[in-house]
Design a protein around this nucleic acid. Structure first.
Lengths: 243, 243
DNA sequence: AAATTTTTATTTGTCTGACATTTAAAAGTC
DNA sequence: GACTTTTAAATGTCAGACAAATAAAAATTT
C-alpha cells in the first residue's frame, strides 16, 4: 500500500483510502497491527493529526480498532455481524428519511425481501424463535401500548421471522430493510381495529411457521403487505382533507 | 443536542455520536450548517483537533460534507443511493471475507434475495435493461475472457436484473448481496463447459424476462443457484485431494 | 451607475511540539 | 518464585500557528 500523490484532495481521506484498500485487498489481515501513528506520519510525510484523522475515518467504519498503551496501536478489526447491522440500519434509516422514498416503494422492498426469507424460515425456525414471535404478538395485544411500542414490537416480530432462516448473511441484509421502515411506520396511527387486524395476520404467520407451511406464510405476508399499504394510504388521505 | 460526560471513552467518538444522534433524530436537517470547528470546540470544551476527529468520523459515513472558505463549514449531507451502495458493498465484502461464511450460506442469501426481485423485474424491466443483460451475456461468451472479467460481467448481469425491479430501495439492499459475492466467485476457475452452462441459464433468464414470465425466471434462477453451488463444491473437493 | 478588480474576513486543512493517560514489559524487591 | 515498582511505548488531548480556499465587502475602473 501506501502511495499518496499530494495533488488533489484531503490528505486524511487519501490516507484512509490507501489503508482501506490494503485491508480490502488482504494486504493487511485481521488483527494485524498497523504501524504506529508516528511511523505512519513519517511514512506518508504528514503530521500526526492528519494521520489520526485518517484512522478515525477507518474506525468509524469499524475497519480498525485502537488500543492504548505499550504494544497498543491500531489493529485491523474483524467486522462483526453486530457492527455491520448497526451500520446498515443507520445508513438505511437516513437514506429513507432523506430521499423522499414513497412509503409504497419502501414497503414493497421490505416485504419482497421478507418473503424471500419465509420459505427458509418455515423449514428451519426453532421453537425458540417461534416463542419469541408469540411473545411479541402477546405484547402487541396489550391495551395500553403506545404506537411506538407497537411498531417496535412489530420490528422484533419480523426480525425473529428473518432470523428463523438461520442465515446470518440474510439476517444482516434484512436488518436494514426491516428496521429502517420503523420511522415510517411510526407515522401511522394504529386504531384498535387495525391493530387487531395486524395481530390476526401475525398469528397466521406464526401458525404457518409452526406448521412449516411455506405457502401459508407467503400468503399471510402478502396480505400483511397489502393491509399495511392500505393503512398508509388512509393516513395520507386524512392528511389531504383533515376536516 | 450536545451534552458530553467526560467519564468513559474517547471524546471524539462521543462528540461524533452526539452529532450523529442529532442528525438521525432530525434535530439537524439536510444541508443545515453545523457550527464551525472553533464554535464546536468551544461548546464541547475540547480542542479543535478533537472536534476535527469527530467530524472526520461523520464524514466517513457520508453524514456530513465539508467546504472550505468563508461561509464554508460542515453541512449535513443528504445520503445518496450511490454513497449508500458503496458503503454497503465495502461492509458486505469485508463481512464475508473476514467471518468464515461458507460459500453455501452466502450463495443461498444472494439467490434468495435475487429471486425476491425477479417477479417485479419480470413486470417492469425496460428494454434498456434487457439490452444490458444481453450485452453482458455476449461478453461472457468471448473466448479470451479472464475469470475475473467473467465474474465482473456476471455481477453486471445480475445488477441489471435487480435494477429491473425499478425499486431503488431493493437495488440498494441487493447491491451488497450481489457485489460481495464476487470475491468468492473469483476463486472459482470456470471451465469452458461451465461458462457455457452459465451463459445458457443467463439466456433463459433474459428470455423469460423478455416474455415477462415470472415463473420461468424463478426456475432459471433456482437452477443457476444449484449449478453455482455444485461448481463451488467441485472446487472445494479438488482442493482437498489435489493429486 | 455598472462592471471589474482588489481586499478582507472566515473557515477548513495542516503542521509543530508538548503533555496526559494507559498499558505491557522490564527491572527490582521480598 | 511471586509480587511490586519502574520504565518505555503508544494513543488521547491540548495549544497555537500558518496555509489555502472562498465568499462577501470594498475599492477601482469603465
Amino acid at each position: 500500500m501506501k502511495i499518496d500523490p499530494q495533488k488533489p484532495a484531503d490528505l486524511s481521506a487519501q490516507i484512509a483510502q490507501a489503508i482501506r484498500d490494503a485491508i480490502i485487498s488482504g494486504e493487511l489481515i485481521v488483527d494485524e497491527r498497523l504501524p504506529s501513528e508516528a511511523e505512519l506520519s513519517d511514512h506518508f510525510q504528514v503530521s500526526r493529526p492528519t494521520v489520526r484523522e485518517a484512522l478515525k475515518r477507518l474506525a468509524a467504519q469499524s475497519l480498525i480498532r485502537t488500543q492504548r498503551g505499550a504494544s497498543g496501536g491500531a489493529f485491523v478489526n474483524r467486522i462483526s455481524f453486530e457492527d455491520a447491522y448497526s451500520q446498515q440500519i443507520t445508513t438505511s434509516t437516513l437514506l429513507l428519511s432523506m430521499n423522499e422514498i414513497s412509503f409504497d416503494t419502501a414497503c414493497e422492498a421490505r416485504f419482497a425481501l421478507e418473503r424471500a426469507c419465509a420459505p427458509l424460515s418455515a423449514q428451519r425456525r426453532t421453537a425458540d424463535q417461534l416463542a419469541t414471535m408469540r411473545a411479541e404478538i402477546f405484547r402487541q395485544a396489550q391495551p395500553g401500548l403506545t404506537d411506538e411500542a407497537f411498531c417496535s414490537s412489530d420490528v422484533a416480530f419480523h426480525r425473529a421471522l428473518v432470523d428463523g432462516a438461520s442465515n446470518p448473511v440474510l439476517s444482516y441484509q434484512l436488518a436494514g430493510a426491516v428496521e429502517a421502515m420503523q420511522p415510517l411506520m411510526n407515522m401511522i396511527t394504529f386504531t384498535a381495529r387495525s391493530r387487531e387486524e395486524i395481530i390476526g395476520l401475525h398469528n397466521r404467520i406464526a401458525d404457518a411457521l409452526e406448521a412449516r407451511d411455506e405457502a401459508k406464510v407467503d400468503a399471510a405476508l402478502v396480505e400483511l403487505e397489502n393491509y399495511t399499504r392500505k393503512l398508509a394510504q388512509d393516513v395520507a388521505q386524512q392528511h389531504r382533507k383533515p376536516a
